[in-house]
Design a protein around this nucleic acid. Sequence first.
DNA 1: TCTGAAAAGTTCACACT
DNA 2: AGTGTGAACTTTTCAGA
Lengths: 151, 151
Amino acid sequence: MPLNELDERIVQALAADARRSYADIGAEVGLSAPAVKRRVDRLLAAGAITGFTVRVDPAALGWHTEALVELYCRHNTSPSDIRRGLARYPEVAAASTVTGEADAVVQVFAADVRHFEQVLERIAGEPFVTRTKSVLVLSPLVRRYGAGSPG
Amino acid sequence: MPLNELDERIVQALAADARRSYADIGAEVGLSAPAVKRRVDRLLAAGAITGFTVRVDPAALGWHTEALVELYCRHNTSPSDIRRGLARYPEVAAASTVTGEADAVVQVFAADVRHFEQVLERIAGEPFVTRTKSVLVLSPLVRRYGAGSPG
DNA sequence: TCTGAAAAGTTCACACT
DNA sequence: AGTGTGAACTTTTCAGA
């Protein structure tokens, strides 16, 4: 779907603060509130906007440990197998299949290292997982676009 | 700040859909709309909730390439050196220092592989960077809590 | 696309527990 | 402390132009 410059500005405004009123956004981009709403509805229907969410501070919610886990899977594992297997863990914030040696990379938030260890053991025990390799995050440096926060 | 079970359920509801009405969330957790609002306000004031944002489909916005880049840095590089060096790139969505061989992991969004290559060259040319190692993201499997989307 | 009205949600003051 | 009710206000949403 083609996004014009007006749509991009609306998306940017919502990315910065999804609770701004349509009238407010409209005043910025030069549209009325209903016009902004129609565009947002269209972006939602087209899948350009997939939802509205909240940005949280991991530490404030008690998630003091973040880790990145490389997953090595059995040869006939499909991406949807991995997705289904990981979606059940609330500690999994993000996961993607990747090029390279590993099959997938998983971002995990846990309360502490002990908790992370338990989650890792359970993930490593999934039938499609043959091996894992993890690194702990020491300090978040850049976190743009609301990326990388657990709930 | 201590979050009780009610707060966690409210945050989870907002993480799934930040536009649900307070009355709706209240019906789920057993509170009135004003009570939910008061708790959200308190979570905002305490910094546990840092904002509301929109979840976007990167491809729909023209970001067709996502990559994870491991950064190997010179021995006397501080985390803030890395942060300052990377913050200038709009393509850098997230970056963290990590344990293990690499010093940092960087999440990069680019329009296409050619664009990513250019960004990677520039990052690799930073004075504090000695070596990089990247993998391309094939398909995003899980993307919870608004994580991992460019703006 | 905008204007204007109806429906819905938010936000407050006040009373209660 | 925290919560619920009801009213005022704002926003959303849907007509019609």
